[in-house]
Nucleic acid binder design. Sequence first.
DNA 1: CGGTACGTTGACCCCATTCAAAGGGGGTGG
DNA 2: CCACCCCCTTTGAATGGGGTCAACGTACCG
Lengths: 260, 260
Amino acid sequence: MDEKEDEKEKEKKEGEVDRGDVTGKGGVGAMRLPSLRCAPLLEEKDSLLDERLRRRLAEIGTLRRLPAGTPLQEEGEKAVSILNLVEGIVATYRLSDEGERRILSFHFPGDLIGLLEKGRYVNSARALTPIVAYVFPTAAFLRFLGEHPGVEEAFLAKAHQDLREAEQHALMLARREAHERLLLLLDLLRKRLPVKEGEGGAVVLDLPLRRADIADYLGLSVEAVSRAFGRLEEEGYLRLLTPRRVELLPLSKERVAALA
Amino acid sequence: MDEKEDEKEKEKKEGEVDRGDVTGKGGVGAMRLPSLRCAPLLEEKDSLLDERLRRRLAEIGTLRRLPAGTPLQEEGEKAVSILNLVEGIVATYRLSDEGERRILSFHFPGDLIGLLEKGRYVNSARALTPIVAYVFPTAAFLRFLGEHPGVEEAFLAKAHQDLREAEQHALMLARREAHERLLLLLDLLRKRLPVKEGEGGAVVLDLPLRRADIADYLGLSVEAVSRAFGRLEEEGYLRLLTPRRVELLPLSKERVAALA
DNA sequence: CGGTACGTTGACCCCATTCAAAGGGGGTGG
DNA sequence: CCACCCCCTTTGAATGGGGTCAACGTACCG
């Protein structure tokens, strides 16, 4: 949607990307391997994949770069591939019977996209920004899981992480007032997105989402989202530098605890 | 809460239950083993546990019967055990900062209770009815997973099932009108609870939930839930035989599709 | 300079919340 | 067996916040 120049540039070579290629942008030269953004089930062991397994995993997939707005999968479609996001942001969503789009989750680097049931995608997914992702054929991916105990454990932990985050989303939606929901979302984004430190604990956040995306995630109308921003600004939680750039102010003392 | 006589009766022997004992109520004499309520990831293979593994699993846990209302785990507490529900209904919930209870999910026979992160419970859980459940020590359970590939696969599928259901819950909460949310919940309960067939496609449902439970799950006030029942009754979706006994009427043609 | 997509603001209405009060319904104790 | 009580549920009236529709503002781009 934005960053049009980026899109244009890559659209023609949207196919496989040489492993080293991607690192040219942002990487420090190290090759990027599949990874999981995940908290472990038990404290002692962190169930992240070790580098050997990540290398093996990389062999069964292909690294691809896709422009913003790319539809990645459709609800009900036969699931041919599973994505491991390396860079960028993806939204998964469903269309209600009235044709309204309900965003179920945002995905960040280290996430897996491609929840499936009986071989079919459960949700639709779409890149919100230009993305880089490993693409694994579903069958090969699942076979790999079965053959590598320890890997399966890591992905089990990841599924649990996703579950916790879905529950968090439900808690967000259970909030009655629009500005409360928005505050929770902004807090979530602050943890996931790169932030620029401001003075005195304030941070500046560049939102990769349009108002419509936020509305569809929070179960609100775009107008309500807009007013919620206004209200949070009045109450001193933030300042809108531009519609897409927010400065989160520090005085959230009592409300920090509120963000269960 | 209800079925007091049952509670009393078992309260004293709330500890371990002999395997054969439980089958006396409802079972056909066959011993009840751990099981998973779950749809497979791929169509061809159903990832349910085979009987041999279920038997092995049974050995590392104990079958227990607990009265309605029993607190099963507390948010943030060190996770000592994981439950596999055999009979009855459990709710998991969290308390918001204002002290309001938000029910995150209802659990039915074949479900696992005990989502954990870094060795601690993520949510609180409480039996809504008298329950029978396998209780597994967390450590032993996870060890068992690691030692039995194929079991881990089944539990991965189960985690994905829970994730889909959490997303379904989010879709419920995203509905704007109370009667829409309630209708979705009733449809969910119809699929999970035993129903008595009425005439012409109507089914009678005995709700194991109080209005407060429904309200906390749907993000509404009890009054709104009550009015939502009234509205669904007016619109011909159901009849309230008693506050806890609902007859779901069949004419849901167009709305059946609406229950995405 | 016009166009388009995005964002904001205003007016009005509807519905859920809230507070209040009044019905059940089951269990306990007299 | 009845009376009482407690909890659950329902109903009513007033309030407020979000949906909707409409219009305006804005930025980017051709």
